[in-house]
């Protein structure tokens, strides 16, 4: 089954002109848009931008960030660079996984995808992750860069080490927790004004800001066994209720600020 679709994908691949400065495009045809779909991609080096649209195919555009120099061999012959990177996708009609072999080059991806799709994205180096207009669950991990979500209906689990996290939800999935973490970056979450959730937040050297009327909740006791002695304390998280409360949204940064803001043009599922 996978092979069948893989063949379709490879046939849909349109190779650009010689040289790797050109954008290359891969189109993945989906037999049906019904059901819950998942798109997975781990970019070894470079950015990922995914935009939801009304079409039924996944249109993948890949562009090397640094064009080739076109070195010659000293005898007026130009070096011809072919296949500077390789991309291919596997699909079973529901789950689509994209692979990139970049040979150490930075390749940025701009992907158009049907709006109702869940995403699992990872950039290992030298890039940002940006997701726009998606109705689904988003898992994004970008150690070295920012993660930005715009106009999302669904849930998210986002992680960065050095980058900032900015997520704007037009709607959220009720009863589903979310989690946002960054070691050094600020975390800014824009939630629907009427969202019902419990925010569990902690930042080391940063501060927490919000325009919601947050209601502090009782912190849970923590009992630790320290050198044969029981130590009783309270959890060192800020735990607040938004509106009537609901699933836990965990927001954790070590040195960044945390911003929880109202997205006034939004609702709930």
């Amino acid at each position: 089954m996978i092979r069948k679709y893989l063949l379709t994908i490879l046939l849909g691949l349109s190779i650009g002109p010689v040289g790797f400065s050109q954008e290359e495009q891969l189109v993945v045809n989906l037999p049906s848009l019904s059901g819950k779909h998942l798109f997975t991609f781990e970019n070894p080096k470079g950015s990922i931008k995914v935009t939801g649209y009304e079409g039924s195919d996944i249109v993948i555009s890949a562009t090397p960030r640094f064009p080739g120099t076109g070195k010659n061999d000293g005898n007026s012959l130009k070096r011809v660079d072919r296949d500077p990177f390789d991309i291919y996708a596997e699909s079973d009609g529901i789950n689509v996984t994209l692979f990139c072999r970049d040979e150490g080059k930075t390749v940025d991806f701009d992907i158009k995808i049907p709006r109702r799709f869940s995403l699992k994205l990872k950039s290992l180096d030298n890039g940002t992750i940006q997701v726009i207009n998606i109705n689904g669950d988003i898992e994004a991990d970008n150690s070295n860069g920012d993660v930005t979500l715009e106009n999302i209906s669904g849930s998210a689990v986002l992680n960065s080490v050095y980058g900032k996290i900015l997520a704007t939800f037009s709607e959220v999935r009720p009863d589903y927790p979310m989690m946002f973490t960054s070691l050094e970056g600020d975390i800014s979450i824009n939630l629907p004004e009427k969202v019902n959730a419990v925010l569990k937040m902690k930042t080391g050297t940063g501060d927490i800001y919000s325009d919601f009327d947050l209601v502090p909740l009782k912190r849970q006791p923590v009992i630790k066994d320290v050198e044969n002695t029981k130590v009783y304390s309270l959890e060192d998280w800020v735990v607040d209720r938004v509106n009537s409360g609901g699933p836990e949204y965990i927001v954790r940064s070590y040195s960044g600020n945390i911003y929880i803001k109202k997205n006034k043009r939004s609702g709930n599922f």
Partner: peptide
Amino acid sequence: DNDNVRLLSLEALLK
């Protein structure tokens, strides 16, 4: 394979 799941598991184990 998700750092957030690892981190949350660590927090849960502290109890």
